[in-house]
Each structure stands twice: as structure tokens, then as C-alpha cells.
């Protein structure tokens, strides 16, 4: 009995693998056909390299003009380039990851191909994962191509290989989380155009929106001690608001996670560390060494990972033709349209 169940599980697992491969090959054939993919890749690299060059030039001019000059000028340039490149790459991921999955399911519905796909033995999980991984593989390819440009910061110093690995890890998990958001929205709404707009709004809400709410909340809170649970001593503009917002509000904002990674290249008292300290309510601040390293971004990545898993499960439910759970946008009731039942 156990062997039977085991072999059945093995078969299911193999079927999921076959399905992911089938969908992945089909999607990648479409994406990589012709010159389009290579043109986009070239433009991406030119943009990243040009941006790095620009930042290096600006940093050099600033330091040589006497502002911010220090005994470690080269390392400062390296850190500034690293910061700028991580910000740019995060922005690219935030735009491309949800955009590349926005039509994954809704386009299948629009083109009336989803029925053809769901009557094959490949599972909804395979369809969802195949779509997600093929869309993300394109984003990952862009990230991979940018590594040599980002590695230029090593010639200036100030940034270690471990910092770069952490930065790219945040980028990869960000792509996974925001790609999953795009996929979920695509499975939820029927039109790709609507899915694209919802994705854009979601990205803005989770980055600029959360930042605005956090800053606004802090500004409206009465001044208090450093500790988050400590009640306010002076009343703020809003009387009832006595506690600062929890750092969890910013977990899905990858820019803050990247700031924490950049803080790792700093002394612990620099601007990036101040930002992270503000977000974490100073919990990890040490009087002697500044902020504790690598404390915030792993929590942010874990939150994005959990979000990805939840959204993938929900997307599978939405794609399955005979799903058990009923989730979807509320629709106005209407009479059955003409045509056959």
C-alpha cells in the first residue's frame, strides 16, 4: 500500500516536472524568438553600464571638489556605484517581473487557449509554475547579464563579494515575489490590460505607498524613546497614535531590504544604516557598532517568499478548471448570454 502510494506520488511529481518543462519550453520559444530578446538584453546592458559610468563620474567629481572627500575616496565611489546599481536593478525587476507575468493566464483566457491546456493531464500547479519560471528566467537572464557591470565596483573597493551576493539574492527573491503578484492578478482578472494596470498600482502601493504610510505614521506619532513598545512621552499630531509603525509594513518593499544590504558595506552609522534603524525602530542599534548587520533583509526576504508561496497556491486554485475554493472578483449577476449553455 505504501509502495503504491509512493509510486503514485512519484508519478505525480514527474507529471508536474513534465508539465513545467512543456509550458516552460513553449513560453521561452515565444520569448526568445527573433531579435527582440537580444535587442532588449543589449539595451538593458547599455542602460546599466551607462548608469554605472554616470554615477562613477558624479561621485568622482563630488569627492575631487572637496565634498565628502575622505581617506577612502575610492571605496566611497565603489559604495555609491553599488548603491546606485542596486537601486536601478531593483527598479528594473519591479517593472519587468510583474509585467512579464501579467498576461501569463489572462492571455490564455483572452485567446481561448486555457481550455485546451487544462484538458491535458498537466496539473494547474505545473501550468502556474511553468509560466512563472519561464517569465522569471527572462528577468534572471537580465540580472545575470548585469553581474559583470556590477562587479566593476570591486575595482574601486568598499564592497565585498558577499555584499553583491546579498544584493542579488534580494533581487532574485523580489523578482519571485513580484512575478507571483503579477501571475496571481493575471489569474484573477480576465483582461491582460486590466492585469497590467493592477500590477503597476500594486508595485507603486508596495514601494512608494508603504514608504509614504510609514513616514506619515512616524510623523503623526508623538515623540518617544527609541524602543518600539515604549509609549510616547509627548503627544503627536494624532492623539491616539502612540506607537510607531511595525517594520513589517516595509517587508515587501525591496528598496529597504537593499538599503540594509548597503548598510552592510558601511560603518554602521552611515545614511543607509540610519534608514534601516528608522524602519526597525532602532531595535538593532548598538551604541558601539551602530546597527547590527544582516538583521532586516532576511526577514524581508522571508516575507516575500511566504507571499510568493501563498500567491502561487491561490493562482493554482484560480487556474484549475474544477477548483475547490471559490475565489475571484465579485461580478454583477447577469442573465446567461445567447449561445449554447
Amino acid at each position: 500500500m505504501t509502495t503504491f502510494t509512493g509510486s503514485r506520488r512519484l508519478r505525480s511529481l514527474r507529471d508536474v516536472g513534465t508539465g513545467i518543462a512543456a509550458v516552460g519550453v513553449k513560453e521561452l520559444r515565444g520569448r526568445m524568438r527573433g531579435r527582440r530578446a537580444f535587442v532588449v538584453l543589449t539595451i538593458h546592458l547599455l542602460l546599466v553600464a551607462g548608469f554605472a559610468w554616470m554615477v562613477e563620474g558624479l561621485a568622482e567629481r563630488t569627492i575631487s571638489s572637496g565634498f565628502g572627500g575622505s581617506f577612502s575616496a575610492s571605496a566611497d565611489i565603489g559604495r555609491q556605484m553599488f548603491t546606485a546599481l542596486l537601486a536601478l536593478l531593483t527598479l528594473i525587476v519591479l517593472v519587468l517581473a510583474p509585467a512579464s507575468t501579467a498576461g501569463a493566464i489572462s492571455l490564455e483566457r483572452e485567446k481561448q487557449t486555457l481550455d485546451l491546456l487544462t484538458t491535458t493531464p498537466i496539473s494547474s500547479l505545473a501550468i502556474v509554475l511553468g509560466k512563472l519560471l519561464s517569465a522569471l528566467s527572462w528577468v534572471f537572464l537580465l540580472l545575470l547579464a548585469s553581474i559583470p557591470v556590477t562587479a566593476l565596483v570591486f575595482t574601486f573597493g568598499g564592497v565585498g563579494p558577499d555584499d553583491m551576493i546579498k544584493g542579488y539574492l534580494v533581487l532574485v527573491v523580489t523578482a519571485l515575489a513580484y512575478g507571483s503578484i503579477g501571475l496571481f492578478v493575471s489569474a484573477l482578472v480576465k483582461r491582460t490590460q486590466a492585469a497590467t494596470v493592477i500590477n503597476l498600482v500594486t508595485v507603486i502601493a508596495l514601494t512608494a505607498g508603504t514608504t509614504f504610510i510609514f513616514v506619515f505614521w512616524v510623523a503623526m506619532t508623538g515623540s518617544s524613546g527609541v524602543l518600539p513598545d515604549q509609549p510616547t512621552r509627548d503627544a503627536g499630531p494624532i492623539d491616539g497614535l502612540t506607537h510607531r509603525p511595525a517594520e513589517a509594513l516595509m517587508w515587501l518593499n525591496p528598496f529597504v531590504a537593499q538599503v540594509d544590504v548597503i548598510c552592510g558595506t558601511d560603518t554602521g552609522f552611515g545614511a543607509s544604516c540610519q534608514v534601516v534603524s528608522g524602519v526597525t525602530n532602532g531595535v538593532t542599534v548598538d551604541q558601539q557598532f551602530g546597527i547590527a548587520r544582516d538583521s532586516y533583509w532576511p526577514r524581508s526576504l522571508a516575507a516575500m517568499g511566504v507571499l510568493s508561496i501563498v500567491l502561487i497556491v491561490l493562482s493554482v486554485q484560480l487556474v484549475a478548471p474544477t477548483r475547490r475554493w471559490r475565489i475571484g472578483l465579485p461580478r454583477p449577476r447577469r442573465r446567461r448570454a445567447g449561445g449554447d449553455a
Binding site: G30, T120, P121
Partner: peptide, 17 residues
């Protein structure tokens, strides 16, 4: 699904294929 072939009333085709 393994013993069945289905052709729906309205069906689409994939672009770029």
C-alpha cells in the same frame, strides 16, 4: 484527460508559434 481529446466550440491559437 488521458483517454480524451477535446475540441471546444471557440478556441484560440497561440501567437508566435
Amino acid at each position: 484527460r488521458r483517454v480524451l481529446g477535446f475540441m471546444p466550440d471557440s478556441f484560440g491559437v497561440y501567437d508566435d508559434m
